[in-house]
């Protein structure tokens, strides 16, 4: 028996919007600690990890660990039927092949039940080691989204380089090149508008903008985004979900241009 009651239903809506473009089908894993998801995109280049801790729910009951395979597109369709102020309750019975989403309006005068079929999904669960990153950039999520969007109109890939001066996003395309530098800036009125760079050593990595652009779909979840870079590791783009958890995206870098060029 599973019953999760989330007062801030819009949160779940946003979560779905943030991952459904990247992943078609995924297993939601429910345990006593929380509601989580890990899935790779179909080309195995990016990975998304979602965690909603049990403390964030008004009511959280999960008798035993359960994994529910869902088509995220269909789930998003159903969640779109929920109002932004609605309270969403996720319910599933043991051994059942369906999950029920219940939407209650804030005034309790409208209650909607949506039952969705579950599916069997073979998915490999990857172990993601805790790692020290060479550079960690925290910046406004809207800013990051804007940069990725702008650059993708010029080129397909972005080189993210972190130096002492700041973080530089650069791209190159048929029509020309573009460079955007964001300096460290902590002297702002609101802390969420700050750009903070923690750097142990300079790092420069190339990524496909296509994926970064789908990561930025999570911007509504959080005002800030944390980008962790290390030269041998996938970049981590993390959007924190207030008091509940996070959505983290991992993206494998592209192999450096010059390495390519040294080949015959």
């Amino acid at each position: 028996m599973l019953e999760l009651r989330l007062v801030q239903g819009s949160l779940l809506k946003k979560v779905l919007e943030s991952i459904k473009d990247l992943v078609n089908d995924a297993n939601f894993d429910c345990s006593a600690t929380g509601f989580s998801l890990q899935a790779m995109d179909s080309s195995h280049v990016a990975l998304v990890a979602l965690l909603l801790r049990s403390e964030g729910f008004e009511h959280y009951r999960c008798d035993r660990n359960i994994s529910m395979g869902m088509n995220l597109g269909n789930m998003a369709k159903m969640l779109k039927c929920a109002g932004n102020d609605d309270i969403i309750t996720i319910k599933a019975d043991d051994g059942s092949d369906t999950v029920t989403f219940m939407f209650e309006s804030p005034t309790q005068d409208k209650i909607a039940d949506f039952e969705m079929k579950l599916m069997d999904i073979d998915s490999e669960h990857l172990g993601i080691p805790e790692a020290e990153y060479h550079a960690i950039v925290r910046m406004p999520s809207a800013e990051f989204g804007r940069i990725c969007k702008d650059l993708s109109s010029i080129g397909d890939t972005v080189v993210i380089s972190v130096t002492k001066e700041g973080v530089k996003f650069s791209t190159r395309g048929d029509i020309g090149t573009a460079n955007i530098v964001c300096r460290q800036n902590t002297t702002v009125d609101k802390p969420e508008e700050a750009t903070v760079i923690e750097m142990n050593e300079p790092v420069s990595l190339t990524f496909a903008l296509r994926y970064l652009n789908s990561f930025t779909k999570a911007s509504p979840l959080s005002n800030t985004v944390t980008i962790s870079l290390s030269s041998e590791l996938p970049v981590v783009v993390e959007y924190k979900i207030a008091e509940m958890g996070y959505v983290r995206y991992y993206l494998a870098p592209k192999i450096e241009e010059d390495e390519e060029e040294t080949k015959p």
Binding site: M40, S43, H44, V45, A46, L47, E124, H125, L126, G127, I128, P129, T206, A208, L233, P234, Y250, L251, A252, P253, K254, I255, E257, E260
Partner: peptide
């Protein structure tokens, strides 16, 4: 071909 694969970084649990 230049795009790395996430599986080369993380192992299956």
């Amino acid at each position: 071909p230049k795009q790395g694969n996430i599986l080369s970084f993380f192992k299956k649990a």
